[in-house]
Design a protein around this nucleic acid. Sequence first.
DNA 1: CCTCTTATTAATAATGATTACTAATAAGAT
DNA 2: ATCTTATTAGTAATCATTATTAATAAGAGG
Lengths: 122, 122
Amino acid sequence: MRNTKQKNLVLEIINNSCNHLTAEEIYMECKKVIPNISLGTVYRNLNHLVESYKIIRIKMKDNIDRFDKNVIHSHVICSECGKIEDVMFDFIKKLPIIKDYEIMNYDLIFNGICKKCKEKEN
Amino acid sequence: MRNTKQKNLVLEIINNSCNHLTAEEIYMECKKVIPNISLGTVYRNLNHLVESYKIIRIKMKDNIDRFDKNVIHSHVICSECGKIEDVMFDFIKKLPIIKDYEIMNYDLIFNGICKKCKEKEN
DNA sequence: CCTCTTATTAATAATGATTACTAATAAGAT
DNA sequence: ATCTTATTAGTAATCATTATTAATAAGAGG
């Protein structure tokens, strides 16, 4: 895996963001620095960075992936409006031993209804 | 939400299967009973059943969703071959209290490398 | 510093899982 | 039985993501 300014930029954008960015959003941020960067390049580097555990991919119900720093934490997603937030609490203290598998990490997503949507319901 | 033989069939197929079926696989099973059932009908009912917590949706890296019974358990997925298996252990004893959210359930996926892929690597 | 190999890139086309649309049908309430 | 409307079959459209290709640039090894 080679070092490129495109790959470094994608990683830097994700590490410096507090949001859970989509590929399209990362692409727009990249263009501010490298105006002619290609969307395909962003997608390819996102895949590389996920595979090398530099970032994490969050699979959303709307089929638009989001990307985040690889810091141990979980997420809570509102089933109603799709809002996603970090949950900074270690529900799983250490990686479990699962027969016939070498476990690298885990994805934990809590599904629920946020305050705003709850109020709208009533 | 109305009861239809199509919706009941989709639910029955998922509840009677030990695998994590794709929409296409469920569609093929449905056709054995209702030959002219539409793929769109399967997708619509899958969405209804997920929204009403009758089944769960598993978002996969290959962007092909899989569906499973709504019984509390987790999954382990091989990053190499994509194989998915059940993990019948309650890592999270009860749903946590998260500020500003009413939590309904959670999705927990362990990522790792299976025995077969590990052996292939060496 | 210079090759040389080959991973990476920009630009664009293609893919395919899922959703949208529409007229016909059938739940199930009254 | 009638009526409303959610659901259906069939088909077309969507669009996030991947594939393709010729040109470029890491970075290894002289």
